[in-house]
């Protein structure tokens, strides 16, 4: 029902929409530049001690130095690998557990209090146990990442599965659908927006988990750089690693947003 001929009124509306979007993009970039400018100025004029707050130019110089000595890709690669592995395991295992709990009401009722307790538990409390179990390598960090993300994945997906429209389930049952058919034809497709929402939350959780893991047990990675920088009072290194983290987390979120655009049709 698309109208190929665009009226003058509609063309003006589209121009306004385009202009609004451009203004928002420019304003976003402006806010960033303004913050960086204030930060640089505060450091340059020593209103605040640059040793404490560093500065954008010092951060850029630190990143360039890390790049030159070849350690930037090593540390970024380490953290990225741990985060992505933990994210993938938490999301897939969490979705699978949620499916099982949807399938069996009895299992759901049995495990509900355990899920609530594990969700409330500060995962950092398990740090010493994790080191004993997995040592101080990547395995411990991936485990911590999974631990932080998995309950969020379970709770989000279970909520999505249980919110399936009851009337649509009745409709499928009236067609003679089996439980597996109800799951594959209705419950999973209708929970797709919830799945994307869960991915978005788990992106943040995965970065929290991997950096937390690197704080307690690591020899490489951005979390390691932050801890090391703090210990030797190299705030430039702390700020540089933090900013790289921001960029990576934003990139991962953008990928999920792209997946959302590709997988979910927006209403016309």
């Amino acid at each position: 029902m698309k109208n190929e001929q665009i009226s003058a009124g509609h063309a003006a509306f589209l121009r306004r929409e385009k202009k609004n979007a451009a203004v928002i993009r420019a304003a976003r970039a402006g806010v960033l530049l303004l913050l960086l400018g204030i930060w640089e100025l505060a450091a340059a004029t020593e209103i605040v001690d640059p040793f404490i707050i560093s500065s954008p130019s010092r951060v850029a110089a630190t990143v360039a130095e890390l790049w030159k000595n070849g350690s930037l890709l090593y540390h970024v690669g380490t953290t990225l690998w741990e985060t992505l592995a933990g994210f993938a395991i938490a999301v897939s295992l969490g979705s699978l557990i949620a499916l099982t709990l949807w399938w069996s009401e009895r299992a759901r009722k049995i495990f509900e209090p355990y899920i609530v307790v594990i969700n409330s538990l500060p995962k950092i409390a398990l740090g010493p146990v994790i080191i004993v179990w997995f040592g101080s390598g990547s395995a411990a960090i991936v485990f911590m990442t999974v631990l932080v993300g998995i309950i969020v994945a379970v709770m989000n997906m279970l909520g999505g599965f249980l919110a399936t429209d009851k009337n649509k389930i009745t409709l499928l049952r009236s067609m003679g659908a089996s439980k597996l058919q109800i799951l594959t034809k209705l419950v999973i497709p209708s929970a797709l927006p919830q799945f994307i929402g869960m991915l978005k939350v788990c992106v943040g959780m995965a970065w929290i988990g991997s950096i937390m893991g690197e704080y307690i047990a690591s020899k490489a990675g951005l979390g390691y750089l932050i801890v090391y920088g703090g210990q030797v009072f190299r705030l430039d290194l702390v700020m540089a690693a933090t900013l790289i983290l921001c960029v990576l987390a934003a990139g991962m979120y953008a990928l999920v947003a792209l997946a959302e655009k590709l997988l979910i049709r927006s209403p016309k």
Partner: peptide, 13 residues
């Protein structure tokens, strides 16, 4: 049987 409910219950996807 063919069952028709109050709303159309078409699957939006």
């Amino acid at each position: 049987f063919g069952y028709m409910l109050q709303k159309d219950e078409l699957f939006p996807w």
